[in-house]
């Protein structure tokens, strides 16, 4: 199958996961909210968050068993960049209340103005960052 078919199929599974989580637990399938919520003090609220994250973690291993390919690719930058990127991703999604899943999928599906704006902003900033790092400022 063509990679685009896999991508669309993968997207459909993500949509199914989001609907399942809302139907069962009444929660938005936003990864930054689910994982970031772990460090806040919500007693009795940890188990489902950890279970969801465990599912995410096990998924590539399941694919490795079934298809012989986990789908995990190699990091593209060195450790200092990974560390800095991690802090920015965590802080930014915490401050902006969502990431690619919460705003980009669930929020757009609800046609939320907040999520449409956030998605436009993080995509534009991601594209600008890649432009600067790959093509430099000389092209501007």
């Amino acid at each position: 199958m063509h990679p685009y078919v896999y991508a669309t199929l993968g997207g459909a599974l993500i949509g199914g996961a989001a609907v399942l989580l809302m139907a069962g637990l009444g929660r938005i399938a936003g990864i930054s909210g689910i994982a970031g919520g772990l460090i806040q003090h919500h007693p009795g609220d940890r188990a489902w968050r950890l279970a969801f994250m465990l599912g995410l973690l096990l998924a590539p291993l399941l694919l490795l068993l079934v298809r012989g390919d986990s789908g995990i690719g190699l990091p593209q930058v060195g450790l200092p960049w990974m560390a800095l990127a991690g802090v920015l991703v965590g802080f930014g999604t915490g401050m902006g209340s969502g990431c690619t899943s919460g705003h980009g999928v669930c929020g757009i599906a609800r046609l939320s103005p907040r999520s449409l704006l956030a998605t436009a902003v993080f995509m534009a900033c991601g594209m600008a960052t890649v432009y600067v790092s790959r093509h430099g400022l000389g092209g501007l």
Partner: peptide, 9 residues
């Protein structure tokens, strides 16, 4: 900020 971090790694 998230977009910048996303684009970095």
């Amino acid at each position: 900020l998230f977009g910048i971090g996303w684009g970095m790694a």
